[in-house]
Design a binder for these strands. Structure first.
Lengths: 157, 157
DNA sequence: TTATGTGCAAACTGTTTGCGCGAAG
DNA sequence: CTTCGCGCAAACAGTTTGCACATAA
């Protein structure tokens, strides 16, 4: 019953495979360096700094610059999510399918919001207040695109 | 009826005054530079980069280093909130009393979460999906400190 | 074979720090 | 008067970029 609780080493290959497919689907080349970086990200499901990754790939002959370029590419293709850390560093992790529901208080429409948007906030809530945010069970209130446009016709700047 | 809609120049002095009191309350000195920086933050209720502030104070003889040191101090004393931008810069604004409710899915307890935690996320949702997040009307789901501790006794790592 | 990725080294942005002078309390 | 903040200039961390060579497709 607790068979699929193990998010450890075995799954990593699967995740890497999926990421590589995604990469090919975007017409990007699969190189040794990129594979290596994806392996690292898959292994450390948590956050890894670009610099962290660079440090670990250096031994394997993958250059810092390559790491930065690859991570940027992965982020652009949606393969990884990224997040800014205090101090200016950027943390990366494989993108998951997690998403959050935005609920428009005007038209009641529900909007799917991208997964990585709340990573940073979730992290800080956990650290500062011990609250473990669960995006999949949450929906947040606000105003959607069109209702926002509509309301700005009748009111304040 | 629309008298207090104006969040423009007039209020700024009040906000600065409040910030300065707060500063004194923390036993910190009030200098020309600090006053100037607070004025800037009060004037631009949105985000201002440390670098932005530095650029604008340079003319007034307030040095870059002073700006960084002051902003760091303000953040430490809770007078301003800060947020990391892509590219490594940090955006600052006067702290408000805005907060969000965290709802524990286990014990149903509601927890007040600090305001600035969501600045980043709100910004990205607005940009990426046109969704204007309203923290004051939202409560998000998750697990609180104690329930999290309790559940980790019976399950995964 | 050819377009694309890589290593290298140098530049760049944003931020931090040690020092002696100057001002706030 | 004494403690703390400031300007200055130099160092630092993280990241980006132009170029010639290497390699995936």
């Amino acid at each position: 019953m607790n068979r699929h609780v193990e998010h450890h080493a075995e799954d990593a290959d699967v995740l890497v495979g999926r990421a590589i497919q995604e990469l090919r689907a975007h017409g990007e080349r699969v190189t040794a360096g990129r594979r290596r970086i994806l392996q690292l990200l898959a292994a450390h499901a948590e956050h890894l700094t670009a610099d962290d990754v660079a440090a670990r790939t250096d031994d394997d002959g993958v250059h810092r610059a390559t790491v930065y370029r690859s991570l940027e590419l992965f982020a652009a293709t949606g393969i990884v999510a990224h997040r800014q850390l205090p101090g200016g560093a950027t943390a990366y992790h494989l993108a998951t399918s997690t998403h959050l529901h935005g609920h428009c208080v005007v038209c009641q429409k529900v909007i799917a919001l991208p997964s990585d948007v709340f990573d940073d906030a979730a992290d800080r809530m956990l650290r500062q207040r011990g609250f473990a945010f669960d995006p999949n069970r949450s929906s947040i209130m606000g105003t959607c695109d069109s209702c926002r446009a509509a309301s700005s016709l009748s009111a304040e700047e």
